[in-house]
Amino acid sequence: MTQAGGSPRRIAAPLRQEVVEGLRAAIVAAEFAPGERLYENALCERFAVSRTVVREALRQLETEGLVSMVAHRGPVVAVLTPEDARDLYELRAALEGTAGALFAERAGDDERQALEAALAEVEAAFATGDITLELAAKDRFYETLFAGSGNRAITATVRGIKARVQVLRGLSLRTEGRAAVSLQELRDIVQAAAVAADPEAARQACEAHVRNAGVLALAALEASA
């Protein structure tokens, strides 16, 4: 779509999503600290958008649990407490363990090959040492696992906690030595779910991966409290 003079005009909805994705990535990457105030003027300049678009984006991120509206301060980066993290990791262990078991039972050849390809993508991302690429590749790995489980309720539930999970995942992956261990745990998941098609082994591998990440993320949260 163009304006009268023929120049491109950015559309409101895609603009809002662009800001949501950019700000979400910045929060996950710890560019903004927990509890830090988010100034609308600065965000308008950063993303070259109007105050209206920024406010809409902030409202969406509030529903995702990444932004909190504080009286007399305005929007701030939400603070995840150790209690919040424990709740999320308990839920993740249940969801991902079930997804792994169902994947082993239900996935066809195409889904199994897709999970192996997603693992290769994670390996390539981890080789770069870029946390943003690592998190994006892990997201795609889990999307593939959940899709292959054939359970839409799991996928819908995970979508609701995804943003907060990304914050915690970033905390654990920044811990020294975690990346290599995490990668081996994903290999164990693929071996159990896609290669051996062993539901119980897949469940255990998924749950172990979540538990190990949770220990590190909780330690990081408690150290910063």
Rank of each mutant, 00 (worst) to 15 (best):
F103K: 03
Q204L: 11
G97I: 03
F126C: 10
R16Q: 07
A194G: 07
E64I: 07
Y142W: 07
K162V: 07
E222P: 05
D198K: 08
R73K: 11
A114Y: 02
N151A: 04
L115C: 05
A117V: 14
A33K: 00
F146G: 07
G97Q: 06
D198A: 09
A12I: 12
V167S: 01
R16E: 12
L216P: 00
S68K: 04
A208G: 09
E121A: 08
G97H: 02
A4N: 12
T155L: 08
G108Y: 05
F47T: 04
R10E: 15
V49E: 01
L218K: 05
L171Y: 03
A201F: 11
S50N: 11
R24V: 01
Y142F: 10
F47K: 09
Q60L: 13
V215R: 14
T98A: 14
A208V: 13
G97F: 00
G35L: 04
T2K: 15
M69Y: 11
A26F: 00
P199Q: 12
E40V: 14
S224F: 10
A94C: 13
A163D: 04
A33G: 15
V49C: 14
R86F: 12
E111I: 07
A85E: 08
R140A: 05
L58R: 08
D109T: 06
V195C: 06
A193H: 01
V167Q: 04
I154F: 03
L119S: 03
E222S: 12
E123M: 07
R92C: 01
